[in-house]
Write a protein that binds this DNA or RNA. Structure first.
Length: 816
RNA sequence: GCGGAUGUGGUGAAAUUGGUAUACACGCCAGACUUAGGAUCUGGUGCCGCAAGGUGUGGAGGUUCAAGUCCUCUCAUCCGCACCA
């Protein structure tokens, strides 16, 4: 029968659906595997990145099913978010309709690719049932003090009219639309992720086995822990007077307390409260105020171009020397790190040095290199020996740091402090299409939690999405309610949550049996069985945000008593991008490949085979149309040659010794492929070499015609290939093996036993000839044969050494 | 600037522990079959060379009997972070 991808694929997709083939068992005594790909945003259609992502997880899922594991391989949609609203503004569609239409379309695409998802556990995070439990968690976290509201400077995207988290600001621009962000002072809710900063950092060590190093490093840098000294700088009397005694001091942080005697000025961020006070109380000239205002409004990119500052005409007292130190405003001091103020040591810090040069501020050298001299043309930022530092002279930097911190603590003028770059996670969004924050503002009671039995607080459907303002706030009735505590008229919170909240616990929801979905988010027993995720597969672009938030939620849920483990994802596989013509596929570049068209022309199996064969998963994948054609031809041949199979429901038993050379070789190749395949899933993930092994086996099989050898080979090879090209393998297997071969395959060691072996012969490491020797041949004989085969190279030379590497090669070392 | 990765034929890429470099595939070349081929099958294909042979894993050194693999330096490309005090 001629290979027809369409007929075969449709038939098996229907079969899998009818037979509920991929639903996990509820028998928790079985060994399990939880295979998860990062779920998609329902943007409308699948792109090749999705196809690669889910092909990988599907291969894992199918492999482990064959190995008799109970496999959970779910799919859902991360379906809240701005694009739905943007589409609404652009096309007048309703976000909900747009979202669920897209989900329906993409689901069909998924199943046309043959992905073995649990259909019964499909979910969308915009489902009211999902929102219901999420709002419950939010209430729990608020009550635990892990969610709080404060006014703060927020990143505001003027284009999307929304607040962005720090992580969503890339190079000073919106991560979605690239518009430069501006700072805006607003109330919003924050998760106290910083409370878990230390644990999030420390537990990275638990992930060293299973996560790529790159991701661990990125998270480590993001958390950005640094140790140092925090202390107060007190104003002198004149400055105190100018400030009307409102501020006596300000706080600074340094990681280099050993340079403290080198302080020659201090600098405040333009947003610092002392600066604000001085502006508000007209303590600065109009001109200076204008300069500060300008500084505050320049973007972070602008600020990085050149250092700029203004002297405030204030002085503080150096805590150790008692000398006066001038106070400046500097554009390079960040308000949201440390205390927004720094001590400046221009002799030993590049930034301070640049600034001092520009404004002609003095340098005090207090660190001498261990060897040689520093040249003074730039800051000496290395560690060294302390000089000009009174009682600390002669100490090395490291000892001095400890001693100086100790001294500050003894004198009660400073404290050993740890700072983090990590900031609390702002989750408020002034948007419609998100999960409403289930809080109520009551004039008498303040912020009041909604009662859990009233959840979910669902979105109103009758909204107008114009792109201006907050649709929930603008809705005529939605926000009006009565206070759950006192019953008076009150208003609902109109902010919705960042969509990263939904993706921070969806992997837990999948563990819940669908029949319990109405009554609980998940159960401890089910979580205990299914978690952690054995293989988590997704793009490197989620290395920080999603993965850090999901880790944070896991730890919070643990502390709330919902679950009993620390880390959600045991192994993480970050796939590379799909490229065409050397560039990332994108509509604007016009270099996209449409999955639907590919399936239509060649079938899902071809798409899957190409994707897994063309490159290892972590590398970039260069699209190549003729290589796709090649994958199609292989599948066609694979199906055609299955006519050599003799129907059976068990693997043939073959007397290996009686076979001819080509037959033996073919069997060896088949079992080699099996050995390779088993490696792939446990650590190497190199599906490309697994497939190459199967191709080699096919080439070897073609050189012989023994029906038993063919039959055995297909029994094994269709099992190996089922995770990659499932449809055609199920077809071949059902025609010949009654699907009995999709199970763990035994490696037959006997096929690897050979009587003779070929050895390379090298002279001084250069390969000169090849010999065939018996497996038991003595080294003496092997060397004799090697010499004979390379006689012309040895003529007139002295042999210095002879090396035999068993089963590999012979090396003869000569001179003369 | 800091951190991470990658560099192998015309192309995508192989090479468990240092042990026959280029598996597998694409492309290309030749041949067979054919009215025809963008089908199928067979063979060839790192580079230079008629050949013998030489040469070859970004570059330069080093360790070793032996280096794509280990060490030192260096170049290029990509990614992440980036005034974090």
């Amino acid at each position: 029968m001629e290979y027809s991808s369409k007929a075969i694929e449709q038939q098996w997709q229907e079969y899998w659906k009818q037979n509920r083939s991929f639903e996990p068992s509820e028998d928790f005594t079985k060994p399990k595997k939880y295979i998860l790909s990062m779920f998609p945003f329902p943007s409308g259609r699948l792109h090749m990145g999705h196809v690669r992502n889910y092909t990988l997880s599907d291969a894992f899922a199918r492999y482990y099913r064959q190995q008799n594991f109970n496999v959970l391989h779910p799919i859902g949609f991360d379906s809240f978010g701005m694009p739905a609203e943007n589409a609404a503004i652009k096309n007048g569609s309703h976000p909900k309709g747009w979202t669920y239409d897209n989900i329906d379309y993409m689901k069909n695409e998924f199943y046309s690719l043959g992905f073995s998802f649990s259909r019964e556990r499909e979910l969308a995070t915009s489902d009211e049932l999902y929102t219901k439990f999420e709002q419950g968690f939010i209430i729990d976290m608020f009550e635990k003090g892990l969610l709080y509201r404060k006014k703060g400077l927020l990143n505001w995207c003027p284009h999307d009219q929304t607040v962005l988290a720090n992580e969503q600001v890339v190079d000073g621009c919106c991560w979605r639309c690239d518009t430069p962000i501006v700072k805006k002072d607003m109330n919003q809710y924050y998760f106290k992720i910083t409370q878990y900063g230390d644990e999030l950092l420390a537990d990275l060590s638990k992930l060293e086995e299973g996560w790529p190093k790159q991701v661990l490093t990125m998270q480590e840098n993001w958390i950005g822990k640094s140790n140092g000294l925090a202390f107060d700088l007190f104003f002198d009397d004149a400055s105190l007077g100018r400030l009307h005694n409102t501020f006596k001091s300000f706080d600074v942080f340094t990681t280099r307390p050993d340079t403290i005697y080198g302080v020659s000025y201090t600098a405040l961020a333009p947003e610092h409260e002392i600066v604000t006070y001085m502006i508000e109380n007209s303590l600065l000239s109009e001109d200076v105020i204008a300069q500060i205002k300008h500084m505050k409004t320049t973007s972070s990119i602008e600020r990085q171009k050149e250092k700029a500052g203004i002297s405030l005409g204030l002085d503080v007292i150096h805590p150790l020397t008692g000398k006066k130190v001038p106070v400046w405003i500097a554009n390079f001091v960040l308000m949201d790190y440390g205390s927004g103020a720094v001590m400046a040591v221009p002799a030993h810090d590049e930034r301070d040095f640049d600034f001092a040069k520009k404004y002609d501020l003095p340098l005090h050298t207090v660190i001498k290199p261990f060897e040689g001299e520093s040249n003074g043309a730039c800051a000496f930022t290395e560690v060294g020996e302390l000089i000009n530092s009174e009682r600390f002279d002669g100490l090395n930097s490291k000892d001095a740091q400890a001693k100086i911190i100790e001294y500050f603590e003894e004198q009660n003028i400073g404290t050993k402090t740890t700072n983090y770059k990590l900031k609390d996670w702002g989750v408020s969004r002034q948007r419609y299409w998100g999960a409403p924050i289930p809080f109520i503002h009551c004039e008498s009671c303040g912020i009041v939690m909604e009662k859990k039995e009233n959840l979910p607080i669902a979105l109103p459907e009758d909204v107008e999405i114009t792109g201006e303002g907050n649709p929930l706030d603008n809705h005529p009735t939605w926000k009006h309610c009565s206070c759950p505590a006192c019953g008076k008229d009150a208003v609902r919170e109109t902010d919705t949550m960042d969509t990263f909240v939904e993706s921070s616990w969806y992997f837990l929801r999948f563990c819940a049996s669908p029949q319990n979905w109405e009554k609980e988010a998940f159960s401890k027993e089910q979580i205990k069985y299914w978690m952690g995720v054995d293989h988590y597969i997704g793009g490197i672009e989620h290395a920080i945000l999603h993965l850090l938030y999901a880790r944070f939620f896991t730890k919070v849920f643990r502390d709330l008593g919902y679950i009993e483990f620390d880390e959600p994802f045991e192994r993480l596989l970050t796939q590379g991008m799909v490229l065409k013509d050397g560039a990332k596929m994108s509509k604007s570049k016009g270099n996209t490949v449409d999955p639907d068209a590919l399936i239509e022309k060649y079938g899902a199996d071809t798409a899957r085979l190409f994707i897994l064969f063309a490159a290892p998963p972590t590398q970039e994948l260069e699209w190549n149309d003729s290589a796709v054609e090649g994958a199609y031809k292989f599948i066609k041949r694979f199906y055609d040659r299955s006519s050599n199979i003799v129907k059976t429901d068990k693997i043939p038993s073959i007397a290996h010794a009686k076979l001819g050379k080509d037959e033996k070789f073919a069997r060896t190749k088949v079992y080699e492929a099996l050995v390779r395949a088993n490696d792939v899933y446990s650590e190497r993930y190199t599906f490309n070499t697994m497939i190459a092994g199967v191709m080699e086996a096919m080439n070897a099989l073609n050189a012989q015609s023994n029906p038993e050898v063919w039959t055995e080979a297909y029994w094994v090879l269709t099992s190996i290939m089922e995770p990659v090209i499932p449809h055609v393998c199920w077809q071949i297997s059902s025609e010949n093996f009654s699907l009995a071969n999709f199970t763990s395959q035994q490696v037959l060691e006997e096929v690897f036993e050979v009587e003779s072996i070929r050895l390379g012969v090298s002279i001084n490491g250069k390969r000169r000839s090849e010999i065939e020797v018996g497996i038991e041949e003595s080294n003496e004989n092997i060397i004799a044969m090697a010499k004979e085969s390379t006689a012309k190279w040895l003529e007139g030379k002295t042999i210095v050494k002879e090396i035999v590497v068993p089963k590999k090669l012979v090396n003869i070392v000569i001179k003369g």
